[in-house]
Nucleic acid binder design. Structure first.
Lengths: 122, 122
DNA sequence: TTGACATATTCCTATATAGGAATGTATTGT
DNA sequence: ACAATACATTCCTATATAGGAATATGTCAA
């Protein structure tokens, strides 16, 4: 089996750096394709294809205005990613805590082990 | 150009559902490969390959213990993803606010437009 | 040493791109 | 109607899988 399609879900869609760049660019407000092309420095067909992927997974919304299409990021669609990563939050806090505790234990065991500074409210 | 390597960064690595599953499984504590195999229901070589990808991008840490290898999730490596998605947080809040405001405006403009219920402190 | 066990690596193949080039499709101004 | 503008889509190709099968590597036990 090959890799899952980029359009299979938001996780796959945002794996591509240019698409993340586009999402960041489009989150502040509507932009037409030409502006996106100028912003990301890719040619127009490539940008349109990235927009197609983002559209398919619901990460952007489009609106037509004359010959222009106005795209904007659908932040709601990013929320599940945020929530998945959030489930790890308490664990990286644990990691930091462990590091801190280890450092403090170090100080306890070897109060003035290393020469310079390290004054703790003397 | 083809898609970026799954090992190019955490974003690409977590695009694969089984790898996300493994990360969730390994975040609560160390597990040996056999346990992971049992948990995700893939064959051992496939699991080892996924672990290889996760190792390469620093999403897991390994420790050898006899003939076993004990893996655990490195939550710190997930933090950048969390932070990237967090930059969109205020925008989906805006979206919800807009939806709410629109709903309220609706009620203001058409107090008892639709037949049933919808009583607003009468 | 030999064998059993735990895990990693290699080989293979079907599939899915990302971007470049060329072309198709609406929509507007004259 | 016609040309120009703004996008989207199609065709092409090099590249990178994910998983299955087979094999290699490393470690312990007797």
């Amino acid at each position: 089996m090959a890799r899952a399609a980029t359009t299979s879900d938001a996780f796959n869609a945002i794996a591509e750096p240019r698409r993340r760049q586009i999402l960041s660019f489009l989150v502040v407000g509507e932009r037409q394709v030409g502006e996106i092309v100028a912003a990301v420095g890719l040619d127009q067909p490539s940008v349109s294809k990235h927009l197609g992927v983002l559209r398919e997974v619901g990460l952007v919304h489009v609106r037509r205005n004359g010959r222009h299409r106005l795209y904007r990021t659908n932040a709601e669609a990013i929320r599940p990613l945020h929530e998945w990563t959030a489930t790890f939050e308490r664990y990286w806090q644990h990691t930091l805590l462990r590091v801190k505790q280890r450092a403090e234990a170090q100080i306890q065991d070897h109060p003035q082990s290393d020469s310079k500074s390290h004054k703790e409210k003397p």
